[in-house]
Nucleic acid binder design. Structure first.
Lengths: 110, 110
DNA sequence: CCAGTACATTCTTATGTAGTGATGCGCCAT
DNA sequence: ATGGCGCATCACTACATAAGAATGTACTGG
């Protein structure tokens, strides 16, 4: 946003990336992948989501370049593509926590 | 994501914040606000979006704490709440540009 | 070749939401 | 007060998509 022109085409591309992170289920999956690569089945078990559901979410995350995959026999191993997910989620988590702290403060002084 | 526990409640809160950025129209509005505070009417003119539409998007951005507002007579001035929007969008823009560069490279060597 | 397994895809339903026009509400000047 | 203006909200339509069930596809072992 600082040095990059936000052309109309760019806004939709960026919005699509944000959309990939705008779902609790996908954030849950990414959180699991924090500890290393996992198969789809392991993610299904870990998250409690349905298999088809997890698979579709992984396609979204893959299309948005947030995860990479590696096929090995019957299994497909998914892993985080890079460290940007950490940065993005940390920024958002920080905002949420600060927001909650502010609300608590506002309530206590009212 | 590194030091913060991603509880189920947290994932939905974070997802809601990302959702606020997951729309081209809202990114367009935020890009306008980069240069300083603006009234709703100015944003309508600058973005070419409908007035009701801009107003609703501003409510979303305000609910997600990305913008602050200041009423002055008939006008409502909106401004970016903090610099996080820059960081978040820059990260995403960087990813998009790197992705496009990689795709170009992949095509040229194929 | 065949059965079984892991994953992807399709179809359907339900829900959310972007966009638009109409209306409501608060503020200002006359 | 009253008319006009800026903005917010409501009602509505169109479209996207999350979730689950069923099916398809690819690989493996017997």
């Amino acid at each position: 946003m600082s040095r990059i022109k936000m052309t109309p085409a760019m806004t939709t591309l960026v919005a699509d990336r944000f959309k990939a992170l705008a779902e609790p289920a996908r954030l849950q999956i990414l959180t699991c992948l924090r500890d290393g690569e996992m198969t789809v089945g392991e993610l299904v078990e870990e998250t409690g989501l349905g298999q088809a559901n997890v698979s579709k979410h992984l396609q979204s995350l893959f299309a948005a370049d947030f995860v990479q995959r590696r096929k090995e026999g019957l299994y497909t191993y998914y892993a985080l593509a890079d460290a940007d997910v950490f940065r993005l989620c940390d920024l958002m988590c920080g905002r949420v926590e600060r927001g909650m702290a502010n609300r608590r403060k506002a309530l206590s002084t009212s």
